[in-house]
Amino acid sequence: MSRLGTLLARETALAWGRGGGPLVSVGFYAGVATLLPLAIGPEPARLAAIAPGAAWVALALASLLSLDRLFERDFEDGALDHLALSPVPLELTCAVKCLGQWLATGAPLALAAPIAAIGLGAKLDMTPLILACALIGGLAFAFTGGIGAALSLGARRGGLLTAVIVLPLFVPPVIFGGGALAAFAGGLPWPGGFILLAAYAAAAVALGPLAMAAACRNALS
């Protein structure tokens, strides 16, 4: 399994440098989180009510950044050929690529999420749940995002296409995660939404690589 280890190290390093890596993603995230109160108005009560949800949507959008490069660079420079010519199944290779993407951008975004939410006026005691939702939701975003990135291989302006393919796939995690956060903020039972979010992430991790590998094989042939 040393092969997968070296691949994960490479993918994380590449994702870290790709399109500015975590700094740009987190910066974009901070930008969106700052724009929201400017549009909605500065009253703390109104802001506090939407803070967790707003932070959550901004997170989904920030996860889209640099996603288009996940497979495209390797496709253009031939690395995908060499990754495919290996005893390692392409499905596993795709999964490791998404994991690298999550480590390099999803995890830093998850660390930024509670800060953004609290900055918008969320209560301090929400921090653990926001962090947990962002970490697990980030996995779902990375693995469903990988499907869009692989499907748009070879297309002109693949980045836009990736976003159009991926945004509908982001709907369930946004609903589940947003629901859990809203329930927690309102003092209602929140585990239901959280469990659904985790289930969606698990399904994305399990099934996403199958779709990605099929899309990659199609693009290569």
């Binding site: 590449l14 253009e76 690395a79």
Partner: peptide
């Protein structure tokens, strides 16, 4: 098998050492 062509899969921003080490390990 090895397939070596124009598209060598090498990343411009990575060093020779990193690329040689990764691809060699990847190929076993």
């Amino acid at each position: 098998l090895h397939l070596i062509g124009h598209q060598d899969g090498l990343k411009p921003a990575r060093t020779t050492r990193e690329e040689l080490s990764f691809w060699s390990h990847w190929c076993g």
